[in-house]
Amino acid sequence: MDLDALAGCLSSSACLVTQTTSGLIIGMLLFLVAVGLTLIFGVLKVVNFSHGAFYMFGAYFAMTAYQLTGSFALAMLAGAAGTAILGLIFERVFMSRVYGADVLMQLLVCYAFVLIFDDVVRVIWGPEFKAMGMPSAFQVMPLFIAGGVVPPYYLLLIGVALVVAIVLGIGLSRSRIGKVIRAAAHNPGMVSALGINTGLIYGGVFALGGMLAGLAGALAAPVRSLTPGMGFSVLIESFIVTVIGGMGSILGALIGALLLGLIRSFGSLGFPLFTEGLMYLFMVIVLVSKPTGLFGKEVA
């Protein structure tokens, strides 16, 4: 424990700015993955254990597109669109067959695809680690805000994630499609009886979830190394986020992810040997005091 370092940081604006943004960056990437997970669970009632694979594919698609075109925007688009299509196919061809089956069956199918997707990446891109590299537009000196260090690329990253959070939040609560999705989550039989194609909604939601994870992977690609199996650790943290925030809640995913990011960034100062432990400790506290998560709904 190094509480002096933590106290010292909390009393210095430079340190506060740097650590807070560093927590936001970790949190926002995590949010993009976790919100897809929570969305798919909320509507389809499936725990998508293979969600990390979409994060991985997003990163690989982005890297390939960047190498081919040299355009960062196209790389992000490729990451998001590629995983959306992949998500749609995966849902329609495989996941849709196990909706009625028990949880164990769903988990097994997902886990099988975790292994299959990892091997697909290994076959296409090779087993060794890769790096996309930072686009030259972002290879600039970091900004200094109140003495704290903030890289411009991370500002973009936080901005994109925030926009996604707002669009998702408003879209689901206000738009017609959002209302249909929520209705389908609540009572798919009734929605279907009203002449709405629930299969299409399910496929669409899964594609959206996959796309968000893919976008997170694409955004992370310039700063994280790409390897087969890279989705796994992200998946575990996303599960912690959804458990803390509440399964199915978008606001919960946002708050949970940001809390986790801040725990990491400040925890590494105050409790350098217990940073991981802190995350789990926090999860346990939430589970004990509010088993449905901070924003989860009580199950009737």
Partner: peptide
Amino acid sequence: DYTEVVTKILQ
């Protein structure tokens, strides 16, 4: 991700 480690070292 090593961001928190990087910023800690910078501090």
